[in-house]
């Protein structure tokens, strides 16, 4: 006891204690650190080749804005965010829908036909994933829409999505030329990834906000609209609400009636 007390006063004690403390903290962190989301590529045995191929693709197509190490760049026409930690889900969404690489700098990346094959997109994803853990491409079970609840999806959609995307998912305007795009003809996987990663102006709906099953319900609700589940009573006029009705009635509608009136007016004369 007294011996320990004596060592306590030793000049090395502080260093030893510091060392022990650091060692303990480090070990504890290693043991208790939050587990990163399951890494698809690691799980599916994403080979180092894929990462390397992805890196080459990245350097050829993305680095001018995102930087050669995906660290992000600031510049007038070459500003791109850092991609460390965005995960393969973000890559799959942005590249898979043709938003990235952008055709030209602008307020918002528009979707267009993608220039990459699925394999290349996966390789790009593997490379970005290797930079830091992030959300990965969703499990197919949440995008096959089996047993999805359309009504529940509708409720979630109206609460979280309709204010930008419109209650019929036809899209809507945001400020300064930005917009929430129409969700028609978007792959379920991409809708899921958009919710997961919150691209551009969109907020993130991670698994704590909307559970995977709820995301699938939302997708099912959108797909129901896309497949004509809302098309009752005739032509929908673009599902734009009263704007479409007004355009129709002030052109074709009243046009037909005025034509009839002119015809009737001439009849007697």
């Amino acid at each position: 006891m007294s011996k320990l007390a004596a060592y306590r006063r030793s000049p090395i004690a502080l260093i030893v204690l510091l060392f022990l403390g650091l060692a303990f903290t480090g070990t504890a962190y290693a043991a208790l650190q939050p587990t990163a989301p399951s890494d698809t590529y690691a799980a599916s045995g994403a080979a180092a080749d894929d990462v390397e191929e992805g890196r080459k693709l990245f350097l050829a197509n993305c680095a001018s804005c995102h930087g050669t190490n995906a660290e992000g760049k600031t510049g007038v026409n070459t500003a791109g965010p850092s991609l460390v930690g965005v995960g393969s889900a973000a890559v799959d969404f942005q590249v898979g829908t043709g938003r990235m690489p952008m055709a030209a700098p602008g307020v918002q990346a528009a979707d267009k036909p993608t220039v990459f094959t699925d394999k290349q997109i996966d390789q790009l994803g593997a490379f970005v994933d290797s930079l830091g853990p992030g959300p990965s491409v969703p499990d197919a079970q949440y995008t096959d829409l089996v047993n999805a609840d359309i009504a529940n999806g509708g409720k979630i959609f109206r609460t979280n999505c309709a204010m930008c995307h419109n209650s019929s998912a036809q899209g809507g305007a945001l400020t300064r030329g930005k917009y929430a795009p129409s969700l028609m003809n978007v792959e379920p996987k991409h809708i899921y990834e958009a919710m997961l990663t919150g691209p551009q102006s969109m907020p993130v709906f991670n698994d704590a906000t909307l559970q995977p099953q709820e995301k699938e319900d939302v997708i099912a609700f959108i797909k129901n609209i896309e497949e004509g589940g809302n098309e009752y009573g005739g032509h929908s006029l673009g599902s734009l609400g009263p704007a479409g009705d007004a355009l129709f009635i002030w052109t074709i509608g009243i046009g037909l009636l005025i034509a009839a009136a002119v015809w009737l007016g001439r009849k007697a004369a």
């Binding site: 109206r158 204010m163 209650s167 609400g241 704007a243």
Partner: peptide, 25 residues
């Protein structure tokens, strides 16, 4: 031609709103 597809809007809830809301002309 469909007019006012009420089913597409869903029931009213003061916490919700749809993009592109506008009244009749």
């Amino acid at each position: 031609v469909t007019i006012n597809a009420v089913w597409a809007y869903g029931p009213y809830d003061p916490s919700q709103v749809t993009a592109g809301s506008q009244p009749d002309f």
